[in-house]
């Protein structure tokens, strides 16, 4: 298109394909300057610090080589927290895909109040996780908590939901999943609406049932939506921070921390800035590996299906 329209002027343009001279690059200099100072320098400096025993405030620091990383491998607290991080990431992703896809299929049908239902399910996405966490705390707290009011109503005992580490980890997964299920729902709704209805009409003519249509038309054609939603939810879960801080503060003990929350603890509470930097580097690597790995995996599957 644009080539046809520009042909008559081709003679005056020195670089016909590139359009503009190198001077135009000054436009991205402010952004690059900001990244250099506030993102790239800290990232590199964090890697340097992770090889030291710096305590976070004094001028003294010694290079200790890979000692912090070796310590991470042996640290049982860190191993537990790493496991939590994967539970937060993978658990939330599984729940959000099942619930999100289910809601999208249900709400793709003509239904009274459909817009309002979508809006309500989506609403918590816009609320700060800190605030969602406080609200859910009213549910799970021991005295006068909404959930314990139900258990005692049926003659049961009060349960210390957030004091048991395993229950608390599951509660964090659940709260995070419910808060952000709206994102998956919206992605799947957009995906469903992009599938041409003629496919279903053809399948109907061929006598395919509802399940067969879902299995052989909807699921394969939703591949791009799956990829988007899974990557987004997984990264969100692996980085989880806010909800943990408000619901359990990482406790009891260190048992409900994620790597993100433990970085803050190691830095400010334990004054091991070098060790905290090493955790930060590991966290960064986890996210990079998961993002790139999943993207490759899901893109390859998509290509194979085409």
């Amino acid at each position: 298109m644009s080539q046809v329209t520009t042909l008559p002027r081709a003679g005056i343009r020195r670089r016909p394909r590139r359009g503009r001279g190198a001077g135009i690059n000054v436009f991205y200099l402010p952004a690059l300057l900001i990244f250099a100072i506030f993102t790239i320098y800290p990232l590199l400096n964090g890697i340097t610090l992770s090889f030291t025993n710096w305590n976070g405030y004094s001028a003294a620091r010694d290079v200790v080589g890979a000692a912090n990383y070796l310590r991470l491998f042996e640290d049982e607290t860190f191993r537990m927290v790493l496991l939590n991080t994967f539970i937060f990431g993978i658990g939330s992703t599984v729940i959000q895909q099942i619930l999100g896809l289910g809601l999208a299929v249900a709400l793709d049908r003509p239904l009274r109040g459909r817009t309002a239902i979508r809006a309500i399910i989506y609403l918590p996405v816009l609320v700060s996780p800190v605030i969602m966490g406080t609200m859910y705390y009213l549910f799970f707290q021991y005295n006068n908590g909404a959930l314990n009011d139900i258990t005692t109503l049926f003659g049961g005992e009060r349960i210390a939901w957030l004091s048991d580490s395993q229950t608390a980890v599951l509660i964090i997964v659940l709260v995070n999943s419910l808060q952000f299920v709206g994102i998956s729902m919206i992605i799947y709704l957009a995906g469903l609406q992009s599938i041409p209805t003629v496919y279903y009409e053809a399948a109907n003519l061929d006598g395919a049932g509802a399940w067969q249509q879902f299995r052989h038309i909807t699921i394969p054609l939703l591949q791009p939506a799956f990829a988007t939603s899974i990557v987004l939810n997984l990264i969100g879960g692996l980085k989880l921070y806010d909800i943990i801080q408000v619901l359990t503060g990482g406790g009891p003990g260190y048992s409900t921390n994620s790597v993100s929350t433990l970085v803050g603890v190691a830095y400010f509470d334990n004054q091991s800035a070098g060790y905290a930097s090493a955790m930060g580097v590991v966290l960064f690597l986890i996210i990079v590996v998961f993002t790139l790995g999943l993207n490759t995996l899901l893109n390859r599957r998509r290509l194979e299906q085409q």
Partner: peptide, 13 residues
Amino acid sequence: MIPPLSILVPLYT
């Protein structure tokens, strides 16, 4: 891809 907490120490410093 950089998680905010992964650069907490150097950024805060």
